[in-house]
Nucleic acid binder design. Sequence first.
DNA 1: GACAGTCCTGTTTTT
DNA 2: CAGGACTGTC
Length: 725
Amino acid sequence: MDVSHLLDALNPAQREAVTTESPHTLVLAGAGSGKTRVLVNRIGWLTEVTGVPVYGVLAVTFTNKAAAEMRHRISALGGQGGRGMWIGTFHGIAHRLLRLHWQEAGLPETFQVLDSDDQIRLLKRVINDLGLDDKRWPARQAAWFINAAKDEGKRPKHIHSADPATDTLIRIYEAYEVAARRAGLVDFAELLLRAHELWLTQAGLLHHYQQRFGHLLVDEFQDTNTIQYAFIRVLAGSSGRTFVVGDDDQAIYGWRGAKVENVQHYLRDFEGASTVRLEQNYRSTANILKAANAVIGHNPARLGKTLWTADGDGEAIDVYAAYNEMDEAQHAVQRLQRWINDGGAASDCAVLYRSNAQSRALEEALIQAQVAYRVYGGLRFFERAEIKDTLAYLRLIASRADDAAFERAVNTPTRGIGGKTLEQVRARAQADNQTLWEAVLGELAGSSLNGRAKTALRAFVELIEQLDRDTRGMSLAEQIDHSLKASGLYSHYAEESRGTLDARTDNLDELVTVASRFARVEVEEGAEPLPELIGFLAYASLEAGEGQSESWQDCVQLMTLHAAKGLEFPLVCIVGMEEGLFPGQKSMEEAGRLEEERRLAYVGITRARQKLLLCYAETRRIHGMDTFGAPSRFLREIPTDVLNEVRPRVQVSRPNYGSAAPRARFVAEPAPSGLKLGAAVRHAKFGLGVITDFEGDGPHTRVQVNFEDEGSKWLVVSYANLQVG
DNA sequence: GACAGTCCTGTTTTT
DNA sequence: CAGGACTGTC
C-alpha cells in the first residue's frame, strides 16, 4: 500500500506519532511543531492503513474552527474523506449524543441550548424568585459558581456547604436546575455533564459507543476540564485506544476550569501510554525560540520540552520602552507600516495584548495612520441583540416551554406587556411550578389581571400560535423571514435605526441569508434528521459565528493573547509588557496563576514567525488613572543577546514626582558593576552562581543569583560584593 | 415606554 | 475613563 502521502515530509518524531501501535499515546506538541498535521495523518493512517472504519473514529477539538480545519484537511487526504466520522467539539459531540438519546438523558425532544447570556438572564430571574438581593448575589457570579461545579461533575447535592455564602449559591444552583429543566433548557456545561451521566447511567448505550469508537483522538488536551477528561476516560473503557495531543506549556485556560494536570493523569490513568515529543519547530526563527524557551524555562513542574529549529537565527527581537500607551501604539503602528512598505502584507501582522481594553489606543493610532485593521473578539453574529430577539420567536415556535425565549420575545418590540404584568406571570409560574407560557394561559383564564394586560397577553399568545401555524411547511429561511415581519421586530429595528448607520436590519437580512444556506444536518446517518429549525437553533447557540461579517481584506489583526493561540503571523507585536498588566496584578496573588501568565507569554512569543516586537509603557492610563508599571518580568527572562532595545536607556525628562529616584528601566544595569542577566558571579561565601533576576534600581537593586551549591538567593548588590566572571 | 442622569465596577473566553 | 445597569422623570 502506498502510504507516502501520510509519511512524506514528516520528521522521525512525527512519523512515530502517526504510526504508533501503542494503545494510548500522548503527543507533547510544542508550538509550531506540526501537531494538526500529525493528528490528521494519524487519522488517515488508522483508516487507510490499519483498516479502522471511519465510523470507528471520534476526534474531539475545542473550537468549531479547529474542528472545521480538521475535517477539511482530512477530506484533502482523499479516501473516504472522513465522511461518517465523528469530528467535533466536546460540546458539539455531547449535543449530538443528547439529541440522539434525549429520552435516556431525561430531556424533552425539543430541548434548547442556552448560551451564557441567556444563562445569566435566567439566573437573574431565579435569584429574584428566591427573594435574594441581586446586589449581594450577582447572576454572573452564580453562573460562575454553577458552571465551575458542573465542570467538576458536581450536582448541587455533591457540593459540600462550607459556609453560608456557599449554602446560598447551592440553593441558587438547585433552583436554577429546576427552572432550566422545566423550560427544557441545557447550558453549555450541562451538555457535557449530561453526556457524561449518560455513560454512567445507561450501561447499554455506553457499551454500544465503546464498541463503535475504537479510536478516540483529542486535540488541545491540556485544555480539558475534569468532566471532559472523565467523558473520554469512560468512553475509552478498557479497550478503546486513545491518541491525545497537547502542550502543557500552552495551558492558558486554567481560570475557566481546564486542568493541565490531566496531561500527567493521562500517563497514570491510561495503561500503557507512551509519550512522543514534537520539539522541532517549523514556524519561528531561532532567536524567537530562544526567547520562548527562556521564558517558559522559568516555570517549574513542566513535562519538559525544548523547541529548536533547523533554520537560522533571524533578526533580533525588538524591545521598545514607550512613555505611555499612545506612544506605544504609535511605535507599533510605525513598525507595521515599515513592514507593509517593505512589501509585506498587512494581514501578516498581528498586535497582541493582554486585555481587550488595550485595543483602543492601538485602534486610534491605526486610524490616524490609515492602516486597515480588524479586531477579533467582541460580539459575534449570533450574540447580537437583534439576532437573539429573532431567534427567541423561533425558539418559542419550537418549544413554548422555553422561558428564556419567552422573556426575550414577550415585550420586544414593546406591546404593552410591562414589568407589572410579567411580575404576576412569573409569580404564578413560580407558585404553580409552571413554565411562563403555562402561567400566561392560567392568568388569561383567571381574574387577577386587568383587561388591558389580558388583551396584550392574549395577543402575544395568539401571535406565537399564529406564527407556528403559518410557518409549518415553510423553509427555514421563510420561517425566519415571516416571523421577523409578522412579529413586528423587523419594522421595530427599521424604525429604530432610521437615519443612523446602525446595521441592525442588515444583520436581520443576513440572518435570513445564513438560514437559507444552512445545510440540514443529519444527526446520524440513517437516523431521523433533526427538524431543520431545531438544528438551526442549536447551531446558532453552539457556533456563535464570526465577530465581524465583513471579511478578508488585507488588514492588520488585533487580538488578545488568548485569542491568538493556534495562529501564527510573520510579524507579531506584543504590547503592554508591564508588571501589573502582564502578568496581571491578580495573577501574582493566587498560586499557580503566575505560571499561567508565563505560558501566555510563551504562547504570544511563539506566534511570531520572523519578527517580534515587545513593548511596554512607563505610564499607562487604566480606569482613568495613571499607573506606573515596571517592565514585565517576562522581558527580563529573555536572554539579552537576542534582544535589541529600540529605544535604549535614555533618561527621559518627565515630571519629577518629588525626589523620587528614576524608575527602574528595562535591564536595569547597576551602573559600574557590569552585572547582568545570565552573568556568572562569585560571592565570597556562597561561591559561584548565575544571575537570574533583577529587582529595583539604584543603591537598592537586588539580584537573584542561582548558586551552584547554595541554590537561589536574593542579594542586595551594594552589600553583596559580587565578583563578575 | 423612552430618555436622561447616576452609580459602579472594571482580566483572559469558547462552547 | 467608559460601558452597563439601574433609577427617576415626563
